[in-house]
């Protein structure tokens, strides 16, 4: 992953935005929307976890 890792500033509500991840995936054979939707759900969960610690 480190070779692929790009520098980016995630928007509020995201940690690794789908557009970044999509560029790293070689090909999506099926329905991209299904993958994107679930990726974004978990990404927002991770975002909430990270910010939880500072919103005491």
């Amino acid at each position: 992953m480190s070779e692929k890792e790009k520098s980016f500033v995630p928007d509020p509500g995201t940690c690794v935005p789908w557009k970044i991840k999509k560029e790293e995936l070689e090909e999506i054979h099926g329905n991209e929307e299904i993958v994107k939707k679930e990726w974004e759900k978990l990404d927002e969960f991770a975002y909430s976890f990270i910010w939880f610690w500072v919103q005491r």
Partner: peptide, 16 residues
């Protein structure tokens, strides 16, 4: 300021 979420994950969390 440059990247708040990344800074929290990589600096703040280990420190606390």
């Amino acid at each position: 300021i440059a990247n708040p979420t990344e800074w929290l994950a990589t600096n703040f969390l280990p420190r606390i």
